[in-house]
Each structure stands twice: as C-alpha cells, then as structure tokens.
C-alpha cells in the first residue's frame, strides 16, 4: 500500500513536471471554451464566407449545438490528445530502464500498472470535468440556461470510454517493446472497434457507442437503455485489460 501511494505520488510529480497536466488542461479548457463559441458564431462564419449566389441558411444555434460541438471535439481530438499524452507512460519507462531501480528495490510490478492507471484516470477525470464545466458555463451564458436531458450521463459515457483507452494503453504496453508499440496497438484496436460498428449486430455491444452517441443522447435520438450493454462491455473489458496487463507485466523482461 505504501509503495502504491509512493509510486502514485511519483506519477503525479512526473505528469506535473513534464508538463503533461499543463498540455491536457490547456487543450481541454480550449475545447470547453471554443465549443459553445463556435456554435454561436457558426451563422456569422457562414455569412462572412459570402459565397456568391449561394445562400446557406442555418437555423438559429441552440445549446444542443454547443454540446454537439463539445462532444465532437472531446471524443475525437480530445481523446487523441489523451492517447498522445499518456501513450508512453509505461513503454517509456521500459525502454529507458527507469523501472529497473524501482523493481530491484522491491516495487511490485502490478503496483506499477495500478498506480499508472490510477493517476492517468484521475487526470483524465479532472481535465474532462474542467472542460465540461467551462462548456456548461459558457453555454448557459450564450444560450441561456436550459437543462439538457442526459447531459451528465453522456459525460459519464465519454469518461468511461477514456478509462477503457487508458487500460488499452497499459495492456498493449505491458508486452510490447519500443516507445510507440503500445500506442499504435491501441490506435489499431480503436480502428477495429470503429470498423466493427458497421455490423448492426455488434453495434449494440460496441464500446465505441460511449464516445459516438453522446449528442444523440441529448437530442433524444438515443436512449439511456441503448447504452447499458456497451457500458457493461466496456467496464468488463477495462477490468480484464487491467488484470491481464498486471499478469503479463509480472513476467516481463526488464
């Protein structure tokens, strides 16, 4: 337990001093501010384009458009930034050899995985919350405070999907070598999940729903019940991935 806390502290310090927290916060706060603003300014932007002869009419933007922007940004660019920031959290330590001193001091290897997951999850949670709070405030300011249905649930889904990606990163880094193999395999699995979404049968199970149906949940195009199976699957996979990475990493050559 003591070594778990010690290694978590080290992870926090690392993320702070290597500016990862700063990068995450800046990017996510920017998304938080930009999303409602883009939604609000969209008609203006189109007007200023002044395409000769073509008249584009877009309906007056609403709070829903602001959240649609927000979920589009965070589920695509946002998750990409998360992957890039945390992509090397385990593999860099393996390639550099910084874990050798720790492990020969008696640090248990599952604790390495667990602390890294803990700290990355906490940072992901905080940045997502900060970003969401910003969007929430700006949207209320620009569009008036109208409550959106399923807003918190939708954020929860995206959050859970983020945790799933972090578990993927740790799992794939636990047995591959090189700085980018874990990141690359996570990206490949994400691609596979996207491709699998084409099949209607798998659609109902696919974790990708947690990061793609967010806006639909707000507009009412998707129901909370539609996501209960993907949530279960994602939760199960996350636990499975974490458990297996601990097992695999135990016997890994360092």
């Amino acid at each position: 337990m003591r070594s778990y806390i010690a290694f978590c502290k080290k992870e926090v310090l690392e993320n702070l001093r290597t500016h990862k927290v700063l990068i995450l916060m800046i990017v996510f706060l920017l998304f938080g501010m930009m999303s409602p603003l883009t939604a609000k300014l969209m008609p203006e932007i189109f007007k200023s384009l002044a395409l000769d002869g073509i008249v584009i009419t877009i309906p007056e933007p609403t709070a829903l458009d602001a959240y649609a922007q927000f979920f589009k940004n965070t589920s695509q660019m946002g998750l990409l930034v998360v992957l890039l920031v945390f992509g090397g959290m385990l593999s860099n330590e393996i390639t550099k050899g910084t874990l050798i001193n720790m492990v020969t001091k008696g640090l248990s290897r599952p604790v390495v995985i667990l602390s890294k997951f803990t700290v990355a999850s906490i940072l992901w949670t905080l940045t997502l919350l900060a970003s969401f709070a910003t969007t929430f405030g700006y949207t209320a300011y620009l569009f008036g405070s109208g409550g959106q249905p399923n807003l918190l649930f939708s954020i929860f889904c995206l959050w859970l999907f983020g945790l799933f990606l972090l578990a993927c990163l740790l799992f794939f880094s636990s047995f591959t070598s090189g700085n980018f193999a874990g990141l690359a395999l996570t990206a490949v699995s994400l691609l596979i999940l996207l491709l699998l979404d084409i099949f209607p049968r798998l659609h109902a199970l696919n974790p990708i729903a947690l990061a793609s149906l967010n806006t639909a949940l707000l507009s009412g195009a998707a129901q909370v019940s539609d996501l209960s199976i993907p949530i279960g699957v994602t939760l199960g996979l996350t636990i499975l991935l974490l458990g297996s990475s601990m097992m695999v990493f135990r016997r890994r050559k360092l």
């Binding site: 010690a6 290694f7 690392e14 001093r17 290597t18 050798i100 720790m102 008696g106």
Partner: peptide, 29 residues
C-alpha cells in the same frame, strides 16, 4: 531483491526529480 542493492551500468533516473526526492521515492518503495 530485498537483500540486494543494484547499480546498473548506466543507471536511469527520473530526470525531473532531485536527488533527495529520488531517494525518498526509493525509500518509500
């Protein structure tokens, strides 16, 4: 390994730490 202290040929540390912070981490572990 609890009986052993190991100095690798090229020891790798967390470069963002100071010596004392690093030793504290090692000691806690």
């Amino acid at each position: 390994n609890r009986h052993i202290g190991y100095l690798p040929d090229v020891p790798e540390f967390y470069g963002y730490m100071k010596a004392k912070e690093y030793l504290t981490l090692c000691g806690e572990i």
